[in-house]
């Protein structure tokens, strides 16, 4: 049996967990490739036009996997948890995929995170193990092991980011959902341009999760979505060590449409760029926008240094 994993949306958050879990259980899996033009094109063709870019990309990955595996992994999150709610997209995506591809004999494999159960994630993975015909002890071991791998990977990211923060270059905090900024087609080009321009991108989503969650309410009290809480909560952690902030969103992201506006209205001491991505922008245009933003940052910085 082969499990297909779409390299989009929650993959970017849970890749270590998923891969190690399946590896430990000796289950074969296949990943869709990095997002490319063709994947986006197919995904868009299958999507309702107004869907957010991230979910269009996701459908493209699912489509790529269709005839290449036995099951496609699509986890599902409930509408609330201790840390906040999730974007409605994540509640629906399982059923959306099932309905869109129902004529192409698709088999979905899911685990559902239900906040009413204690050890929610563990319970979900044990269930998943059961569906895969594994003994409970096996699944438990695989899960705990995968959790370790995940933890190590996160710590590594944090250490690496701390090192980057020491660099003597302009630093720009990039606030974006992980699946957007780490997507090879829509996110990575932005990071590359920033690096080419001799600046250091600092990724908001890498911030230590607990600390970020403890922080968000300083900026926005009633913010409901976990993902955005983590991003907003990273601002107090990094703000004093960066020179500017980029808010990168996938068109027309629901949560970001409000959160970005709050941030622009409330954060007055750093230059902010609101960058909406629809997947159609050319490299040149993006370069110009980022360059002029970097110019503003440099100018402000020089001005401040002059004053001091």
């Amino acid at each position: 049996m082969i499990i297909g994993i779409p390299r989009a949306l929650l993959y970017h958050k849970y890749k270590h967990l998923w891969k190690s879990f399946f590896k430990e259980l000796g289950i074969d899996y296949i990943l869709s490739p990095d997002t490319n033009k063709e994947i986006l094109r197919k995904g868009s063709a299958y999507s309702i036009d107004e869907s957010c870019l991230s979910s269009k990309i996701y459908l493209g990955h699912v489509e790529w996997l269709l005839d290449k595996c036995d099951y496609i992994l699509i986890p599902r999150f409930s509408d609330y948890s201790r840390n906040g709610t999730v974007c409605p997209k994540f509640l629906a995506i399982y059923d959306v995929v099932a309905n869109i591809f129902r004529d192409r004999s698709i088999n979905l494999l899911s685990y559902s995170i239900n906040p009413k159960v204690t050890h929610v994630e563990m319970a979900a993975f044990l269930k998943l193990g059961k569906i895969l015909n594994k003994k409970k002890s096996q699944s438990l071991y695989a899960y705990l092991n995968a959790k370790q791998v995940e933890k190590k990977a996160h710590l590594l990211e944090i250490t690496e980011q701390e090192r980057l923060l020491q660099e003597n270059k302009l630093k720009i905090l990039v606030l974006a959902h992980r699946y957007n900024i780490f997507d090879k087609y829509i996110g990575e080009p932005i990071l590359n341009i920033l690096r080419e321009q001799e600046t250091v991108p600092i990724i908001g989503d890498i911030a230590p999760q607990k600390e970020a969650i403890a922080n968000y309410a300083q900026i926005s009290e009633t913010l409901p979505w976990v993902c955005n809480r983590e991003l907003v909560g990273s601002i107090p952690i990094y703000k004093d060590r960066v020179d500017g902030i980029i808010l990168m969103s996938a068109f027309p992201c629901g949560p970001d449409s409000l959160v970005n506006e709050i941030l622009i209205r409330r954060i007055k001491d750093k230059p902010i760029l609101n960058l909406m991505i629809d997947g159609q922008e050319g490299k040149a245009g993006m370069e110009t926008r980022l360059e002029s933003f970097i110019d503003i940052i440099r100018f402000k910085k020089d001005e401040q240094n002059g004053r001091n």
């Binding site: 309702i48 869907s51 957010c52 629906a92 995506i93 959306v96 309905n99 869109i100």
Partner: peptide, 9 residues
């Protein structure tokens, strides 16, 4: 978003 997601159904 919720209504967009209802549309394939």
């Amino acid at each position: 978003t919720p209504e967009i997601d209802a549309m394939p159904i």
